[in-house]
């Protein structure tokens, strides 16, 4: 059942004309998402990661040897622009998936839990249209969360440490402007990395009317994927795990710029989008709404 692009016939009720279309619903979805205090709390927490990192490094008297602590941490004191990269490495395994799990797990199950799902559907939002809008909202959150981390990292890094040309992994040095561009590229990479998980969350969310269950299940899925990713006996499986390329943004910090893993990651995530999008579609359009 598609959100019928056809106009209903001109019935006795008078001509019905599509007015708002899907953009209205999307706008409303986004405004509801970002009006929730929970969303803001998560974004603040995300922004705090680089801030805490930077402050801890600033206050600490001992200097780190290269290679100690999370990647790039030893560089932070010399160049504040590394704060964002370090924070990204720290946040990717658990914290970002956690926030995505909350948002994506809440998409359908949250509406079902509140009971608003039935009112959206009799409005009628259209089940496919609602799924698409819900996913778009979750995807936007992925982008906003990673951008928050990047921007917060850049700001706190610039505030607490000197800023200058950035040394890439290959040992080459790039200008501040280019390093900011690469930071944005990293944010884009991480956003893309999280899209697969967001779709898995959307699918799980169609399975239940209990949002907390869907959130927890999504987070558990992301943790399990990462555990599987470090079991050597399963190395045949590793390239197919959605979390496998999460730290692959390191390739964006090499010279010459290597977009290969960006593309690889994007294709992998697209596969997850297709599979779990299809599952979410089939599940949701046949679901009996009993909440």
């Amino acid at each position: 059942m598609s959100p019928s692009e056809t106009r209903p016939p001109e019935t006795e009720g008078g001509p019905h004309v599509r007015h708002g279309g899907s953009w209205d619903l999307l706008g409303s979805e986004i405004s509801v998402l970002f009006r929730r205090r929970r969303t803001w709390a998560m974004l603040v927490a995300v922004a705090l990661i680089p801030i805490l990192l930077a402050v801890a490094v600033r206050l600490s008297s001992s200097t780190l040897d290269p290679g100690e602590g999370p990647p790039f941490l030893d560089r932070v004191t010399q160049n504040g622009l590394f704060v964002g990269f370090t924070a990204m490495v720290v946040a990717i395994p658990l914290f970002l998936p956690l926030t995505i799990g909350v948002v994506a797990g809440d998409t359908i199950a949250g509406e079902a839990g509140l009971g608003t799902l039935r009112y959206l559907l009799v409005a009628p939002a259209g089940r496919v249209r609602l799924l698409l809008v819900k996913y778009a909202g979750a995807a936007l959150f992925c982008l906003v969360a990673t951008l928050t981390l990047t921007v917060s990292g850049a700001l706190v890094g610039a505030a607490l440490f000197p800023v200058g040309p950035v040394t890439l992994l290959s040992g080459d040095t790039i200008s501040v402007t280019e390093s900011l561009l690469r930071s944005l590229l990293v944010a884009a990479y991480v956003t893309v990395s999280l899209l697969g998980l967001a779709m898995i969350g959307l699918f799980i969310s169609t399975l239940t009317d209990v949002p907390v269950g869907a959130m927890a299940a999504t987070i558990v899925v992301s943790v399990i994927a990462q555990i599987l990713d470090v079991i050597p006996q399963l190395d045949w499986l590793h390239p197919w795990l959605f979390s496998h390329y999460w730290l692959g943004f390191a390739d964006l910090l090499r010279q010459p710029l290597d977009l290969g893993s960006f593309a690889h990651n994007a294709i992998l995530q697209a596969g997850y989008l297709a599979v779990f999008g299809a599952l979410a579609y089939s599940r949701f359009v046949t679901k009996d709404i009993l909440s």
Binding site: P66, D74, V89, L169, S170
Partner: peptide
């Protein structure tokens, strides 16, 4: 992972660089 080792050969110069130790 999150690092890179380089061997650069240019004429009579060879540079070895390891990003994990920044050496």
């Amino acid at each position: 992972r999150m690092a890179e080792r380089n061997v650069v050969h240019n004429g009579s110069d060879i540079w070895l660089y390891d990003s994990s130790t920044n050496a």
